[in-house]
Design a protein around this nucleic acid. Sequence first.
RNA 1: UGCCCGGUGGUGUAACGGUAGCACAACAGAUUUUGGUUCUGUUUGCCCAAGUUCGAAUCUUGGCCGGGCAACCA
Length: 554
Amino acid sequence: MSGEKSLNFIEEIVEEDIKEGKYANIVTRFPPEPNGYLHIGHAKAICLNFGLTREYPGYTNLRFDDTNPVTEETEYVDSIKADIKWLGFEWKNEHYTSDYFEQLYEFAVRLIRKGLAYVDDSTPEEIAEGKGTPTTPGAASPYRERSVEENLSLFKEMREGKYKDGEKVLRAKIDLTDANMQMRDPLMYRIKHAHHHRTGDEWCIYPMYDFAHGQSDSIENITHSICTLEFVPHRPLYDWFIDKLEIFPSHQYEFARLNLSYTVMSKRKLLQLVNEKIVSGWDDPRMPTISAFRRRGYTPESIRNFCDRVGVQKRENLIDLSLLEFFIREDMNKKALRRMAVLDPVKLVITNYPEGKTEEMETENNPEDPAAGRRTIPFSRELWIEREDFMEDPPKKFFRLGPGRAVRLKSAYIIQCIGFKKDDKGNIAEIHAEYLPQSRSGHDSSGMKVKGTIHWLSIPHAKKAEVRLYDRLFKVEDPANAEGDFKEHINPDSLQIIPNAFIEPSLANSEPDEHFQFIRKGYFYLDKDSTTNNLVFNRTVTLKDTWAKEKNKE
RNA sequence: UGCCCGGUGGUGUAACGGUAGCACAACAGAUUUUGGUUCUGUUUGCCCAAGUUCGAAUCUUGGCCGGGCAACCA
């Protein structure tokens, strides 16, 4: 295989189907339930489904699987559409399973007529008991042998609202002894006197997912119906419905869902984090949702590249968070404008620099992209530098400031530390240094070489901003499968707010959608909480930090 | 204990009977006015056992291990 891209197993199937002439065009669909926000796991499914119809002739539908009115809301419909578009994909048709309710009802009637479905008055407990266990066969319900006529009229009455929630259900009549639990007379319809986000109060019976999903695929002529592994045992049931109903044979293929380390991926758990206010909302930048990644400063490209790289397979997986971080760093390195910001300031006084003097220092916006241009930054006698860039008693490998040590101020002068002051509590309050006038950036005739370069801001010129630093939401790699409740593993330091960070003047006019690198600190993105008077920056991701590793070795 | 799915370096993912490769991570070095970027190099792997074959990660059989299935959820 010389340089050819290797295909995943679904692409292989599609390619084979097209080659054999089974289909001239393929149709796929992305079928979210509007009961939560989309997460990075959905992104994988989106890239797969929409990606397939980019590579091969055909199209992809968006279908909202809205068969459970109790949990579904229009807010979720809107967020899902926005997220798919943001990721860069377009659907051909927008459908809702609820659009097929009448058709599905008719399908159910058809099965009753064939003697393949019956109304059951049993309680949920009785039905559960009647299903048996994986190792013991189930037993028939006493209502299993009702006549077609009786079933027809009872089902009609169910629809008409004659019964209360839970009083009756419609079940498929298959085989209570099947080794596959899904085939033991599964429920097709249940009664729910609930308001539906689209059909309102028109219906009081709703189809189960298992009776809606496959048929909806069939109605839309979906050729390759792609879903996750947990539905593998359901496939024989879908095939059974298709066979008995004699409708378009859509085929289901299953892949392993994406798991990401240090987070959770189930909508139920994410909803808990939102409802219990552990995070500020579905788009809290610590969440693994698409809207959270967007807010945090991730780009569609980075997420698509990530999804490409993780591949499509049937084995369980737990992807390293560092892989996702690699892709956003890769993208940001090309795009982000470099800026100076001091997050934890300490004052530096250049004692031999004239008081009141200001110089404009020129510097590049992005060393990786000359087209990004250059800008100037004001320099003066008193500067903010990062507290961690000074050590009173530094080790040999510390290439920053310490008594007697010299560093380059990025795009400005080389300075040498000549002393420092402490406050009452023993904290460093002020650092004193002298600069080398001949060492000005771009005009350096000092002949001096220094090992380190640090960032800085002129105190009289610096502006303030709020900066939010995020870390992984959980302390353990796989919180969902860790000992105890997943919430016990929340990382208490996942959010650090710096209300008064300093930023360079040019940053004061930041526009939304601009990505920045705060030099030596990481990539940052303007948060939606920003106002003209109070800019808020989210840290998208840190830079790789080999010094941090070096420090940890001790 | 029934049925189904799956096991390739630390994590992902290739190989389609013919030299186990790629990415991330890790480690070492070079370059660097970001301890970033870039570049170079290194470590680490076919779940086990039999069989078929000149040759097996790949095919067969048996084991072992992991996951899923018994919601009026999807």
